[in-house]
Design a protein around this nucleic acid. Structure first.
Lengths: 128, 128
DNA sequence: ACTAAAGTCTGTAGCTACTACGGAGTCAAC
DNA sequence: GTTGACTCCGTAGTAGCTACAGACTTTAGT
C-alpha cells in the first residue's frame, strides 16, 4: 500500500503522514526498490488511532503515550484512563475560558450604540 | 519610559513588546543616545489595547484592523462591530466544537471498565 | 517503444504568537 | 572601578501541520 492509499484510508493528509513518521509517531515503513513507502494494514490501524485521537484534541505527545500504553495489552488501563481524564479536564478548562470570553464579548457588543468610533463601546472596552 | 517600564505598565512580556514592534503592531519608538527604546504614554495606551484584545482572543491581524479602525475616530463603528461579532462567532463555534469533544470524551471514559488494556473501551474507541 | 500525466521522494520554509537564548554594550550604585 | 541590572540585536525554538521545489518513478494511452 502506497502513501496516498494510506492517506485515503485514514483521512490523513499525505504530507502529515510523512510528518508523523519524521517525528517518530509512525514507524518507518518498508520501502520498494525505488524507495517508495510500502504500508501494511497495521499501519492503517495505527494511523487511524492517531487521526481519531487528534480529532478528539489529544496532543501528539499524549497520543505517543497512548500508543505506547496500548502496546502492552496485558497491563491495567488505569494510565490510559488517566490520560483521557487529564485531557477532558483540559478541554473543560478551555470551555470555561471560552465561556468567559463569549460573555465579555457579548457584553461589549450589546453595549455599543453604533455611533462613531470615538464613542464606540467596543473600542473603549478594548482600551481598558 | 524604558521597555521594562512599558512591559510592567501593560502586563506584556518584554520580549513580546519587541516582537510586536518587529511585526509592525507597535510603532518604532524614539531611541536614547545609547539606542534604548523610549516610550510615551500613548504607547502604553496602544499596547494596553493590544494586550486586552489578545486576552479576549482576537488574533494579531484582527487587532491590527481594530487599531487602524480606531484611529479614524470620526467614522462609524460598524466595522469595529463587525470584527467583534465575527470573533464572537468564532468563539462560539469553538465552544460547540469543545462541547462535542467533551461529550465524546466523557462517554469514552464512562464506558471503560478499568480492566486490561486489551479490553479498554477508551483504546477501542480511539482505534475507531 | 514513447510520451505525458500522475505519483513519490527529500529537504526546506512557511504559518501563529510568542519565548528564550547568546554575546555585546550601557547604566546606576557602591 | 567594578558589580549587577538593564538593554540591544539576531536567531532559533515551540505545536502541528502545510506547501513548496526539483528530481525521480510509475502508469496509462497511443
Amino acid at each position: 500500500m502506497r502513501i496516498s492509499d494510506l492517506a485515503k484510508a485514514t483521512g490523513c493528509h499525505l504530507e502529515t503522514v510523512r510528518y508523523y513518521e519524521r517525528i517518530g509517531l509512525l514507524p518507518p515503513p518498508v520501502r520498494s526498490k525505488a524507495g517508495y513507502r510500502d504500508y501494511r494494514d497495521s499501519d492503517v490501524e495505527r494511523l487511524r488511532f492517531v487521526v481519531r485521537s487528534r480529532a478528539l484534541g489529544f496532543s501528539l505527545e499524549e497520543i505517543r503515550s497512548l500508543l505506547t500504553l496500548a502496546s502492552r495489552t496485558e497491563l491495567s488501563c488505569k494510565q490510559v484512563d488517566g490520560v483521557a481524564r487529564m485531557h477532558l479536564a483540559q478541554v473543560e478548562a478551555k470551555q470555561r475560558e471560552l465561556a468567559a470570553l463569549a460573555t465579555e464579548l457579548r457584553g461589549m457588543i450589546e453595549t455599543c450604540h453604533h455611533d462613531t468610533r470615538a464613542t464606540c463601546a467596543i473600542l473603549q472596552s478594548l482600551a481598558g
